[in-house]
Simulated scan of single mutants.
Amino acid sequence: MKHYSYAEWQQYVKDEMGNSLREELEGHLYTCDQCLDIYLQAVTANETSLPTLPNETQFTDRIMVMVPVTNCNVSKVEITKTVPDTRLFHYLLAAAATLLLMFTGVFQTLASYTSAFEKPMIQEKKPKPSVTEGVINRTFAWMDSIEKKEAIKK
């Protein structure tokens, strides 16, 4: 991944580069945290040269006036009156559905299926004994049989 220098980020902040390189730098900011840190350093260093808003509240008010209003004849009072009614309706609908599912036994049936999911799907397989372990086990079994035969003879 190509990283950009501090000088390039300063040019970006001061708007001293072409559109193609500008778009490339903007795209790079989305993927590179290292360059984002350098960019923030360049912004901080050039903070005094950036334009400032003389009156932020007036700016916000002017922008809000320019935002198009949708063609809606409903006043704010009417909207606030209908919102609690829809919430109450949704609450009652959810409560009725819960009671219906409880009384029909759906939840009980679902609870019985959960035991099947609680069991592990993959069972542990015991590893096969190696050839060496098999030979050792047979040797000990053979030696035990010889000791038993000698014990019987005595």
Rank of each mutant, 00 (worst) to 15 (best):
Lys2Tyr: 01
His3Glu: 09
Ala7Asn: 08
Gln10Lys: 11
Gln10Glu: 12
Gln11Gly: 02
Tyr12Pro: 02
Tyr12Ala: 12
Tyr12Met: 15
Val13Lys: 01
Lys14Glu: 10
Lys14Ala: 13
Lys14Gly: 02
Asn19Glu: 14
Asn19Ala: 13
Ser20Pro: 01
Arg22Cys: 07
Glu23Ile: 05
Glu23Thr: 06
Glu23Asn: 14
Glu23His: 09
Leu29Pro: 00
Cys32Ala: 04
Cys32Asn: 03
Cys32Phe: 03
Asp33Phe: 02
Asp33Arg: 07
Gln34His: 14
Gln34Phe: 15
Cys35Arg: 02
Leu36Thr: 12
Leu36Glu: 06
Leu36Ser: 12
Asp37Leu: 11
Ile38Arg: 07
Tyr39Val: 03
Leu40Arg: 15
Gln41Leu: 15
Ala42Gly: 04
Ala42Met: 05
Val43Arg: 15
Thr44Glu: 15
Thr48Arg: 13
Ser49Asn: 05
Leu50Glu: 08
Pro51Lys: 02
Pro51Met: 02
Thr52His: 07
Leu53Val: 15
Pro54Gln: 02
Asn55Ala: 06
Glu56Trp: 01
Thr57Trp: 01
Thr57Asp: 08
Gln58Asn: 06
Thr60Gly: 02
Asp61Thr: 06
Arg62Pro: 00
Arg62Lys: 06
Ile63Pro: 03
Ile63Trp: 07
Met64Lys: 12
Pro68Asn: 07
Pro68Lys: 10
Pro68Val: 01
Thr70His: 07
Asn71Val: 09
Cys72Gly: 00
Asn73Trp: 01
Ser75Tyr: 01
Lys76Trp: 03
Lys76Leu: 10
Lys76Met: 06
Val77Pro: 00
Ile79Tyr: 13
Ile79Met: 12
Thr80Ile: 10
Thr80Gly: 06
Thr80Tyr: 09
Lys81Trp: 03
Thr82Gln: 10
Thr82Val: 11
Pro84Gly: 04
Arg87His: 10
Leu88Pro: 00
Leu88Phe: 04
Phe89Ser: 04
His90Asn: 09
His90Thr: 05
Tyr91Phe: 07
Leu93His: 05
Ala94Cys: 00
Ala95Val: 08
Ala97Phe: 04
Thr98Glu: 08
Leu99His: 10
Leu101His: 11
Met102Asn: 12
Met102Tyr: 11
Met102Ala: 13
Val106Thr: 15
Phe107Gly: 14
Phe107Cys: 07
Gln108Ser: 13
Leu110Tyr: 12
Leu110Ser: 09
Ala111Asn: 10
Ser112Arg: 15
Tyr113Gln: 14
Ala116Pro: 02
Phe117Thr: 05
Glu118Thr: 13
Pro120Leu: 09
Met121Ala: 11
Met121Arg: 15
Met121Thr: 12
Glu124Cys: 10
Lys125Leu: 12
Lys125Gln: 12
Lys126Ser: 14
Pro129Asp: 08
Ser130Ala: 03
Ser130Val: 01
Val131Asp: 09
Val131Tyr: 03
Val131Thr: 05
Val131Cys: 01
Ile136Val: 14
Ile136Cys: 01
Asn137Ser: 09
Thr139Lys: 03
Phe140Leu: 06
Phe140Glu: 03
Phe140Pro: 00
Phe140Ile: 05
Trp142Lys: 10
Trp142Cys: 05
Met143Pro: 00
Asp144His: 07
Ser145Val: 00
Ser145Cys: 02
Glu147His: 10
Lys149Gly: 13
Lys149Gln: 13
Lys149Thr: 11
Lys149Leu: 14
Glu150Ile: 14
Glu150Gly: 01
Ala151Met: 08
Ile152His: 04
Lys153Glu: 07
Lys153Arg: 09
Lys153Gln: 06
Lys154Ala: 03
